[in-house]
């Protein structure tokens, strides 16, 4: 039996929703292998996350509660996942293509002698299992085949809906990773950007600003609009590099990928590296004072206008509309 193992992602015992998209991917892959979907949770105090995950139509949830897993380190997580995959007959191991997934999964692939697919957007059967993935900043989609018996996949979660609770619960089992400690790596700190707003990758509405906003203070315009719509906030690399906003806000080829219902690109030129992170949005609104800005090539609705004038106006008027 060729099972599919999903490595869950959580922050301090809070499930990250991207995991549910990875489960949907795993369910599709398991249809092709004929095996089960099992989930592995590594951490400290994660029995709650494990219980929660048991509701999403998976066959079993394993969790390894160990102080050594409290803070994520690839050097500890990877060998545990490799051991778990081997013990559970998983031939596919997957996880979201988050920064953790990107850091971790290649090490898992090396341990399983597996080929790895980055950013999978599709898995299907066509004379054998095939995957599709974007590259070249999303300007090319390739179809690939993994030639090794084991396969490791990072999942582009914007291309998969979240798995839904089924009403049933799967067995939840504690699992011993048999961890060996190392003296060549230490976790120091995780400085979380605290925010009341929805996570960018989950938000239904994303309001993003670019270098044209000229300062961090002016980003209050962006956050005010986002807050009226209950949205997340994002930015271009140029805005992050200029020190206007934290790196965690960067959307694009080398930042986050988002695909909300509604995306506002404000004072953003529309470089291909930025488009790579937001082109999948359902509705794109662009506000830019330059009528030739490339962002208008991909936007559904455009306003050629000064952001400093129209964004406050839009925010004010939307307040009464969304009430």
């Amino acid at each position: 039996m060729a099972n599919v193992l999903v490595v869950a992602e959580h922050v301090d015992g809070q499930l990250r929703k991207v995991t549910l998209s990875a489960i949907t991917f795993a369910q599709e892959a398991a249809q092709l292998t004929g095996g089960d979907v099992e989930v592995l949770v590594l951490g400290s105090g994660v029995d709650g996350v494990a219980e929660e995950l048991s509701k999403y139509g998976v066959s079993r949830v394993l969790y390894a509660d160990d102080a050594a897993f409290q803070n994520y380190l690839a050097e500890y997580y990877a060998p545990a996942i490799v051991a778990c995959a081997q013990q559970t007959n998983a031939t596919i191991v997957c996880s979201p293509a988050s920064t953790t997934g990107k850091d971790l999964l290649p090490r898992v692939a090396a341990g399983l002698e597996a080929g790895m697919v980055s950013d999978a957007i599709d898995v299907f059967d066509d004379g054998g299992m095939k995957f599709r993935r974007p590259l070249w900043a999303g300007n090319v989609i390739t179809t690939v085949e993994v030639t090794t018996p084991n396969k490791v996949v990072s999942v582009r979660t914007t291309d998969y809906d979240s798995a839904e609770p089924t009403g049933d619960t799967a067995p939840v089992e504690s699992w011993d990773a048999g961890l060996e400690s190392r003296d060549d790596v230490e976790f120091v700190s995780f400085d979380q950007v605290k925010s009341e707003r929805p996570e960018l990758t989950d938000a239904e509405v994303v309001v993003a600003g670019g270098r044209g906003l000229k300062s961090g203070e002016n980003f209050e315009m962006i956050t005010a609009l986002a807050d009226v719509l209950g949205g997340g906030v994002g930015a271009t690399r140029a805005a992050v590099d200029s020190g206007f906003v934290p790196n965690d806000w960067q959307i694009g080829q080398t930042g986050k990928v988002v695909a909300p219902q509604l995306y506002f690109a404000i004072a953003i030129s529309g470089a291909i590296q930025h488009l790579a992170g937001m082109k999948g949005s359902q509705n794109i609104v662009a506000i830019n004072k330059d009528p030739d800005a490339p962002i208008f090539q991909v936007s559904d609705y455009g306003l050629v206008a000064d952001a400093f004038e129209v964004v406050p106006e839009l925010t004010e008027k939307l307040k009464s509309v969304v009430e």
Binding site: A114, G115, M116, V117, K130, P134, G138, N139, V140, I141, T142, T143, V144, E145, V146, T147, T148, K279, I284, P291, F296, Q297, V298, S299, D300, Y301, G302, L303, V304
Partner: peptide, 21 residues
């Protein structure tokens, strides 16, 4: 010899430019 073989290259669906309001 590749562990991941690339079989086919395609362009993603194009987005059409919308309207200026």
């Amino acid at each position: 010899a590749p562990r991941v073989e690339v079989l086919k290259f395609e362009a993603p669906p194009e987005r059409e430019a919308g309207e200026i309001l």
